[in-house]
């Protein structure tokens, strides 16, 4: 919940409501981009950029190297698979 997971913005889902699609390790899901969006630019400006996603909300824009390092960290501490399955809506932890 606190580490977040890096993903790459792949599409705009709902401009008015600040929703984008983010791809994380091959999984795509809707993510709220309100906290990283530039108020003066359309959401499409985010497409292709990396963001750090916490519980379905993009909280920070990061560069690709940072994204790769964080994905590696998550894999090494054994959190990556659980996080990705949880994103897909699968129950893994209980």
């Amino acid at each position: 919940m606190c580490l977040g997971i890096p993903g790459r913005v792949s599409a705009v889902l709902d401009e008015a409501n600040g929703l984008v699609e983010v791809e994380v390790s091959g999984v795509r899901r809707a993510v709220d981009a309100v906290c990283v969006a530039d108020p003066d630019a359309p959401l499409s400006a985010l497409i292709g950029t990396w963001v750090l996603v916490h519980v379905g909300f993009a909280m920070s824009r990061i560069d690709e190297a940072e994204a790769m390092n964080t994905l590696r960290l998550l894999a090494e501490i054994g959190e990556l698979d659980a996080e990705v399955s949880a994103m897909q809506g699968m129950e893994t932890r209980a």
């Binding site: 919940m1 606190c2 709220d32 916490h54 519980v55 909300f57």
Partner: peptide
């Protein structure tokens, strides 16, 4: 709704939504 300031914006934004 659990967590520190890291997850607090997510639930606040969900209520607004």
């Amino acid at each position: 709704a659990l967590g520190f300031e890291t997850t607090m914006p997510s639930t606040a934004l969900t209520i607004l939504r």
